[in-house]
């Protein structure tokens, strides 16, 4: 039983990270109908930015909680700047081009960013310091959940909660939903759609960067390919949940995370991807637009 609960928590932790990334895929898709293949790189860039900032702060012996907060903040800002810029130079000029053009541009951006970071950093794994302290109050439960897992769960839940409050209640949140539902009408009521699109990229990249810092601190090492791998998983989760749907992305991420974790625990980690993708295929057979997706989406 304890083993099962441990697997449950590790699945939820994974799911949280996938969700932080999947939200960026699903929001961008919801608004402009583009699969932003470069999105995984925002997560990778967040982790690298975090590494640089954390090492500097640790040299100056800042207290650990401060290091964590400042590192996450720096990663969010830097990744957001990348997300904003990628949209400006790689997607916006192609807004009126045929569907395939921005898709190819996105893949190009992804390859470019990987190679760029590889050139200015390294292709090897780099150690990442552990930024999350051991919480004393969790010690009795050490067998089922570690401090880092707990922190990942809590931080991502807070981030998702803030996101849903923003989307539901704020002016810009309403403008985002309006733009996703009917872009031309959004223009006609006076929404600056270009600004909403930029904001969506900034938001998605920021969330991915938080995920990057959290997981890097958990795993203890990073390289330039982590964005590609996590990006594919998170994209799968977004499709599983119904791409374009925000609750769908979260649900899909937890379903995927739990499936992987239970497969690893009861079968073998060699099969985790097999089960994950088998589940994806199975769900898409019965619900072609994902768990919470709307039917008849024909955007790709």
């Amino acid at each position: 039983m304890e083993y099962f609960i441990e697997l449950l928590f590790s699945g939820l932790t994974r799911g949280s990270i996938y969700a932080l990334i999947a939200l960026g895929y699903t929001m961008v898709y919801g608004i402009i109908g583009l699969i932003n293949f470069a999105h995984g790189e925002m997560y990778m860039i967040g982790a690298f930015t975090g590494l640089i900032v954390a090492e500097i702060l640790l040299i100056y012996q800042f207290p650990l909680p401060a290091v964590f907060v400042l590192t996450a903040l720096a990663a969010v800002i830097w990744s957001s700047a990348y997300g904003f810029t990628v949209e400006r130079i790689a997607y916006r000029p192609l807004r009126k081009a045929p569907r395939l053009a921005p898709l190819i541009s996105a893949i190009g951006m992804s390859i470019f960013l990987q190679n760029y970071v590889q050139l200015v950093q390294t292709a090897d794994f780099l150690p990442f310091p552990s930024l999350i302290p051991e919480f004393a109050f969790l010690e009795p439960y050490a067998g089922i959940i570690g401090s880092t897992d707990a922190a990942i769960l809590v931080v991502s839940l807070i981030a998702m909660l803030l996101l849903s409050v923003m989307v539901k209640w704020t002016r810009i949140g309403k403008a985002m939903r309006a733009t996703a539902q009917d872009q031309k009408m959004a223009l006609l009521v006076g929404v600056n759609v270009d600004r909403i699109i930029s904001f969506t990229f900034i938001l998605g990249s920021g969330l991915a960067a938080i995920g990057g810092v959290l997981i890097a601190s958990h795993v203890g090492q990073i390289n330039v390919f982590i964005g590609f791998i996590a990006g594919i998983k998170a994209f799968t989760a977004a499709v599983l949940g119904g791409i374009g749907s925000i609750p769908g992305a979260v649900l899909g991420s937890y379903v995927l995370g739990l499936t992987e974790s239970l497969t690893t625990g009861y079968v073998s980690s060699d099969y985790e991807d097999v089960f994950a993708f088998a589940l994806l295929v199975l769900i898409l057979i019965f619900r072609p637009s994902g768990l919470l997706g709307k039917a008849s989406v024909d955007k790709v």
Partner: peptide, 9 residues
């Protein structure tokens, strides 16, 4: 033309 109500709002 066609009203363009935001359907899910």
């Amino acid at each position: 033309e066609g009203r363009h109500i935001f359907p899910a709002l």
